[in-house]
Amino acid sequence: MRKKTTSKANQKDGMIRIISGQFKGRKLPVKNVTGLRPTTDRVKETVFNWLMQDTREATVLDCFAGSGGLGFECLSRFAKQAHFIELDKLAASQLQQNIATLKLSNAEVINSSAIDVLSNNKDQLTFSLVFVDPPFRKELAQHICELLEQNQWLTDDALIYVEVEKELSLVAPNNWQIIKEKQAGQVLCRLYQRDN
């Protein structure tokens, strides 16, 4: 979820569209929360072309869920489960409502900061597909990637999608290999695979 500077007063609540899978074409409401911008359909199409063979039965973690567009796309494509981390209360509440609308029993919303959640893996959860799409220019991506690896949140061959501003020099953990990369405007999209 990206941060933008447009004032709240000029914006109405929006919608996201699920582009494929069992919920293809469904539109879900998104709260107009300052700083949230859903991933565009164009970028989603690229990402899910990369992940075409990897979403079914995946255990998914969306670290900065915002609208939930990436996580809902995975669930539409038969992911086993998805956990949405979202700090903003309104956005988290809307995620919960959208889960209820889609009648999903395999999705959970965690209303907290990604750093707080990932700092301790006391339940020893692991994820095979993780999305790291933080607000721009907050220096969050590097820290989150380090926490994912250090605190054993990832399966042995997990896929990690990272979306950051193109000028950011992200240093991924040594055992993460870039398998796909694309620049779309000001955004740099990378897909890593973890090698244990």
Rank of each mutant, 00 (worst) to 15 (best):
G14Y: 06
G68F: 01
Q94W: 02
D116H: 14
G25L: 00
L102C: 05
S93T: 05
I16A: 09
V47P: 00
A65N: 13
V30P: 09
S93I: 06
V187W: 10
M52V: 07
V171W: 05
P173M: 08
Q81G: 08
E73M: 00
Q142P: 01
T6K: 10
V30C: 08
L147P: 10
T6L: 13
E167P: 08
G71K: 00
C63S: 11
K180H: 06
E163V: 10
M1D: 00
E163S: 03
S119C: 05
S113L: 05
T40A: 05
K182G: 15
A107K: 09
K12S: 09
Q96E: 02
F127N: 01
N10H: 06
D195T: 15
N49W: 03
I110Y: 05
C145T: 08
F78L: 11
R194E: 12
E165Y: 12
T101L: 06
K180C: 04
T34Y: 15
P134W: 00
Q94S: 05
V130D: 02
I18T: 06
I99V: 11
Q177F: 01
K89Y: 12
F48C: 11
P29H: 15
V43L: 03
V30T: 12
I18D: 05
I179T: 14
A58N: 03
K24P: 09
T5D: 11
D116F: 08
L90S: 15
L95H: 09
E108T: 15
F136W: 14
N121C: 14
K138C: 09
F23A: 08
A79D: 00
K89L: 08
A107S: 10
I19W: 07
T34G: 15
A184D: 01
C63I: 03
Y161N: 07
R190F: 00
K12I: 07
I179V: 15
N98Q: 05
E181F: 01
E181D: 09
A91I: 02
D133L: 01
N32D: 13
S76Q: 04
E86L: 01
N196K: 11
N196G: 11
T155P: 04
E146Q: 14
Q81I: 07
F23T: 07
E167D: 10
E181T: 15
T39F: 07
G14K: 07
F84T: 08
F23E: 10
L95S: 15
D54Q: 14
S76H: 04
N175M: 09
R37Q: 12
N111L: 04
D195W: 06
K166T: 09
G71M: 03
K8L: 06
L188F: 04
V47I: 13
P134Q: 02
T101M: 02
I110H: 14
N98F: 01
S112C: 04
I144G: 00
A92S: 13
K44G: 14
K103L: 07
K180Q: 11
P134H: 13
E149W: 03
K4I: 14
Q97E: 12
L188I: 08
F23G: 09
D133F: 02
